[in-house]
């Protein structure tokens, strides 16, 4: 369908964008890649009065390494993240997950910050950010604040973002030396949001960080499962207690075409597949 009517403004700087969001309050909404927002307008699922186009804010479009921290600007496009040597070197979990994010034409416009703000529980990038223990930097005309990724996602398509606030960037710790990682998902068609997925990072000195996609209302660490697998011998096979641990960590929804029970089953399959294959991937 055609989009509903709205007014459009393209601020020239971050300061101007934040002032604009502050000034128009609830009636304004940021427009980044538009790959979720414009689709929801086309389906008439939302009808904001004002779109504030932030795509011109080049200060939010950079990827940089500062010591052991990778800074990823909110307006970094999926394609840019996929091709970045910095990301591939320091946080290869992202590089492994990105080919699963939609298709090339969507990746050419969709942004990192847009994906985090949209907070789809089946989306790849929010899950990876939680698995990597990243932090978000948020800004408004009142100032800046930081929030851990796990606290940022508060529910189905819900985040801690307040009115007038923008995601400016994420700070992601480089994966520890000796760490291993793997990503996999099960979807009906390549590029679709998955029915279930798993982002995993394992470091020698700490517990596995496992984040399942599409199996709860938000991305979060599966701590019961990680605890249960502590000291397990690989390859994993028929682990007693895995199903119970997954049931404790996850809370999948019944959706048309995929029951909650099926999703839990898929999460189990992915646990074996991702963690066994992970042992074969050379450590960082």
């Amino acid at each position: 369908m055609k989009y509903p009517d709205f007014a459009y403004v393209r601020p020239a700087s971050l300061g101007e964008a934040l002032d604009c969001l502050q000034k128009y309050g609830d009636s304004a909404i940021p427009l980044a890649g538009g790959q979720s927002l414009l689709a929801t307008l086309a389906m008439r699922l939302s009808s904001p009065e004002i779109l504030v186009d932030i795509t011109g804010l080049t200060e939010l479009s950079e990827i940089a390494r500062e010591g052991d921290t990778i800074r990823i600007g909110a307006l970094v496009k999926h394609v840019q993240l996929l091709q970045s040597p910095i990301v591939r070197g320091a946080t290869p979990l992202f590089t492994a997950a990105l080919p699963h994010v939609a298709h090339v034409a969507i990746r050419n416009r969709g942004t990192f910050g847009g994906s985090l703000a949209f907070a789809d529980p089946a989306a790849e990038l929010p899950a990876c950010l939680v698995a990597l223990g990243g932090t978000l930097v948020l800004g408004s005309s009142a100032g800046r604040r930081e929030i851990g990724a796990e606290d940022f996602f508060t529910g189905l398509l819900e985040t801690d973002l307040r009115p007038g606030e923008l995601i400016l960037e994420a700070r992601v710790p480089a994966q520890a030396p000796g760490s291993r990682w793997n990503f996999s998902e099960l979807s009906r068609r390549h590029g679709d949001f998955p029915l279930a997925g798993l982002a995993a990072v394992m470091s020698p000195m700490s517990e596995a960080r496992l984040v399942y996609l599409g199996c709860a209302d938000r991305p979060k660490l599966a701590t019961a499962t990680a605890g249960m697998l502590r000291g397990a011998s690989y390859p994993l096979k028929d682990v007693p207690g895995l199903a119970a641990a997954l049931a404790e960590d996850l809370d999948p929804a019944d959706t048309p075409g995929c029951s909650a029970e099926t999703r839990l089953q898929l999460a189990g399959t992915l646990t074996y597949r991702v963690l066994n294959d992970l042992q074969e991937i050379p450590a960082r």
Partner: peptide, 23 residues
Amino acid sequence: EHGVCGACSVLVDGAVVRSCLML
């Protein structure tokens, strides 16, 4: 007209995009 079929693909600055998902 909401991003899933690709019929509307065009190039913008050399990159293929969905012209139904861009103003």
